[in-house]
Amino acid sequence: MKQFAIAAALWAGLAAVSPPPAVNDALITGDTLPPKLSAFNLLINARTPSFGVRPYALNTALFSDYAEKYRAIYVPQGQKASWRDDGVLEFPVGSVLIKSFGYPDDLRKPEENVRMLETRLLIRRASGWVALPYVWDADGKDATLARAGKRIDVNWTHLDGKPRTISYAVPNVNQCKGCHDLGGTLTPLGPKARNLNDGVRLQSWVKDGFLDQMPANAPAVPRFDDAKAPLEERARAYLDVNCGHCHNKAGPANTSGLWLDWNQPRDVNFGFGKRPTAAGRGSGDREFAIAAGHPESSYLVYRMESLDPGIAMPEIGRNMVHTEAVSMLSDWIRTRK
């Protein structure tokens, strides 16, 4: 009898669990800007994607003030992403790229006590990609659209065990375009084949029918902090991801003539012997973006080391110095001829 009661209770409990709510495809492909993130049903919570939404990571990521980032992709059921040798994979209308940002109490324990700040959606509609920044409510249950951006004070214990406090910046929708712009069109930046390719991930995507195909010798970039990888590739991977989205021939920083994307040949426009154009204080009295052999004379390094908005690069979303990257790029410049 007792056993039966337990079984019955279990059964009842199971029955009470409704099937996971389906992602709201109509909202994704519609033309509204939903005020609440929950309306999409893309996430169970900030760190956990819904059923059918696929988490992923990148080899070398954009530096975001040491925030922990949780990425996921949704592609409508029955459809696939398409392979692209160069640039970002092609996602069908109805797809969503999801990126959530948060800080753990202690960066040395990144999984514990994470305070979520914001979730950014890039939605592929018939009219093109749309960027929507959502800021998590104080109770952490839902997130609210913040098209005008927001500043949030954040503190945590850093990798060195010391406390850090910053004024974290949630971008406004124009600033989204400030980076995600290619020749006037909003474009995703992260999920490029070479930056997704870690030897396992894309293979499993193809196997699962999430990606249509991939070539046998698919390109790959290393992690910028992988000491075993060639320094040249680590540097180029970092510059591509952190600078190249603006600093390319069609990007928001094209008029600087400093182009740091993956495909830029190593010439003046890649920074070697490149004088400042409109850098102003960003030149730091240094003559060249990259002075081969001399990181201390390269204004690229100077701008990465600054937190002054009139000097700092990238212009948006950086309130901390990425010391590990500065160190790697300085080593790279020091050993170039």
Binding site: A169, N174, P309, I316
Partner: peptide, 12 residues
């Protein structure tokens, strides 16, 4: 008191 961005007002 500007904390971020490379200019005061940007028009695109």
């Amino acid at each position: 008191g500007q904390k971020g961005a490379g200019e005061g007002l940007l028009i695109t």
